[in-house]
Design a protein around this nucleic acid. Structure first.
Length: 581
RNA sequence: GCGCCUGUAGCUCAGCGGAUAGAGCACUAGCCUCCGGAGCUAGGGGCCACAGGUUCAAAUCCUGUCAGGCGCGCCA
């Protein structure tokens, strides 16, 4: 439907150019929108206005030229009008709108997918939490965003690989080992202070206790260095396993777990640095080694190797991103906590140092989550090891509600997540509101089935009977779903889809309440027109609605397609679409 | 001090340069003989922080001011 309209407008633009009426140098993108007011028709475009200034003509003139150059507009439109500044307000033929339902039915799960990605390969890296403790809520948000992006991009014709980068070397790991070792010693009555900046969460004690169980006192008899290293290795394995489990309970799996240590082991860090040095992008100063990131727009140069000879994380990040590029991806996407935003320029400098345009790397920032319970903020302190883990949230509200809340706001803004609201089974809880719309339709189908009514295919129903404005609101909303998916994917903003689903669910609930879909269960269903007066009933409710033969079937088709889009949309967000709740 | 982000209804937030700026909470007044009321309807509520500029058109883009958040390590 939208395609036909777009083609009609593009065709008109081409003809106008051929006839010399318009120059149209950069061929404009024809955008369509659903107008807010009924007088503006049911589909509007702003192309005329957008090309007007380049044409040096008034938007009105351009609009008129477009209209004059349309071929057989009567095949598509009932009316095309030019409104004030230069809007093209179109009224599309009803039959075309109804085709939307046929399209959704035919495409099924593929409805909403597109090929705008053109098979480009994307490496999407997210979560990448240090294996030094359990995942917390912030990681959960990153996970939800990452997964939704992966789905959106795949649906838009990109080839996506999900990757988790494991920071399994360096200072944090060392600290982890030392912390566990200290606790282990304490368990055995030794005086062993926790290191400064050590990890002090209760999970450290648990890990120590399990080590104790597994190894008894053998660890304590070893030299401190060795024992600490053993502690580190075992704690690391255990914590990483925990992260995997948590992600799995959250419904998220990665294609690839990439180890930072492997970069160092393979010597690729040195290799990469040598390479940069040859191109004069590294230099020594004050005993340290620096990356000349300022040559690519960063505000200053950055250290890659400290005076003591240790590499900074930047060194491994350079090697890591170089590795990603070498693996042949066209686009790298990193999902980061918003507190890392200061690193964007230097990572883009890295990308450019390798001769790629800087937008080869796109960073999605994820802001903090404030957990609330019944409107009250839950205080957390990461330093003291007091924080709510992702696992606790999942156990509390379930993965679906958690994901929906994580995806409800633009990812780079703070999010208030009310745990109590998320478990509420009411219209105030947006997750239930949307899922219920789906379940409600399933329920309707169950009732229909029990009465021997099956949901027909669009071709088997007389869709022409769908004439009510509420029916058309739904159809119009359904028609925009593919562009919502494309827009969300292109902007890397899953929240747009979350909003869309809430709006669609709202329209469904309104429709469902106001209109009766199945014929009355009694045998009075073949009453003549006079049987039930047109306007005797109140404007709300279905009391006054006429029983029209064939309408129930047409409406069932409509419901079926609404349900299909809700299911597709929720699936895109990694959320289930239950048949009953 | 420098950089990034944010400032939209009482609250939480949407809003690809387009028409009279929207939604959900909250508030007010209503709606259950009926396919799930886990729902629906109606109403009030705004100088889109402020001031300039670009444009046929600015909440949206640019500049400045004010307010809040974050970042400015040879920490990750």
């Amino acid at each position: 439907m939208r395609e036909k309209v777009t083609e009609a407008l593009q065709g008109a633009l081409h003809r106008a150019r051929r006839r010399g009426q318009l120059k149209i140098e950069p061929f404009p993108v024809v955008t369509l929108e659903l107008p807010k007011r009924p007088e503006w028709g049911d589909l509007a475009s702003t192309v005329a206005m957008s090309v007007a200034s380049a044409e040096r003509r008034s938007p009105q003139d351009v609009a008129q030229i477009i209209v004059d150059n349309m071929e057989h507009p009567e095949a598509i439109f009932d009316r095309v009008e030019i409104a004030r500044p230069g809007f093209l307000n179109m009224t599309v033929k009803r039959g075309l709108w109804l085709e939307v339902l046929t399209t959704i039915e035919a495409e099924g799960r593929a409805y909403g997918t597109s090929a705008i990605g053109a098979g480009r390969r994307v490496l999407l890296e997210y979560v990448s939490a240090n294996p030094t403790g359990p995942l917390h809520v912030g990681h959960g948000r990153g996970a939800a965003v990452g997964q939704a992006l992966a789905n959106l991009l795949s649906a838009s014709g990109y080839e996506v690989v999900n990757e988790y980068y494991i920071n399994d070397s360096g200072r944090q790991m060392k600290l982890l080992g030392a912390s566990v070792y200290a606790r282990l010693q304490q368990l055995n009555g030794r005086e062993a202070p926790l290191p400064e900046d050590g990890y002090r969460g209760a999970y450290i004690d648990e890990v120590a206790a399990r080590l104790q169980e597994q190894c008894g006192t053998t660890l304590l008899e070893q030299p401190a260095d060795e024992a600490e290293q053993r502690c580190r290795d075992l704690a690391y394995q255990e914590l990483l396993e925990g992260i995997r489990r948590d992600l799995q309970s959250f419904g998220i799996t990665f294609d690839m777990w990439f180890s930072e240590a492997s970069l160092q082991a393979s010597g690729s860090v040195e290799h990469v640095l040598d390479d940069l040095r040859k191109r004069d992008l590294l230099f020594e100063e004050a005993g340290a080694l620096w990356f000349r990131s300022s040559a690519f727009g960063d505000e200053k140069d950055r250290v890659v190797r400290k005076q003591e000879g240790e590499y900074t994380y930047l060194a491994t990040d350079i090697a890591y991103h170089r590795d990603k590029l070498l693996r042949g991806y066209d686009l790298l996407i990193d999902v980061w906590g918003a507190d890392h935003h200061g690193y964007i320029p230097r990572m883009q400098a890295v990308i450019q140092a390798y001769g790629y345009p800087k937008d080869c790397l796109r960073i999605v920032l994820v802001q903090m989550v404030n957990l609330l319970r019944a409107g009250r903020k839950i205080e957390m302190s990461k330093r003291a090891g007091e924080f709510i883990t992702l696992r606790e949230v999942i156990e509390d509200v379930g993965p679906d509600a958690a994901k929906f809340f994580f995806l409800m706001r633009r990812s780079d803004t703070h999010l208030d997540f009310d745990l109590e609201l998320a478990t509420q089974k009411s219209a105030e809880n947006p997750v239930y509101y949307v899922q219920y719309a789906h379940a409600r339709i399933s329920s309707l189908f169950r009732v229909a089935e029990s009465r021997g009514i099956t949901v027909p295919k669009p071709s088997e129903a007389n869709l022409e009977l769908l004439t009510d404005p509420d029916e058309f609101s739904l159809i119009k909303k359904l028609s925009t779903y593919p562009s919502v998916v494309q827009g969300s994917a292109a902007a890397l903003e899953p929240h747009r889809l979350t909003f869309y689903l809430q709006e669609l669910a709202g329209l469904l609930h309104t429709f469902y309440y106001k209109h009766r879909i199945l014929p009355p269960a009694s045998d009075l269903d073949t009453v003549e027109d006079e049987g039930i007066a047109d306007e005797s009933g109140p404007s709300m409710g279905w009391h006054g609605e006429r029983v029209v033969p064939g309408l129930p079937e047409a409406r069932l088709v409509l419901m079926h397609e609404v349900q299909s889009v809700i299911r597709n949309g929720l699936g895109m967000l990694g959320i289930s679409a239950p048949d009953r709740m």
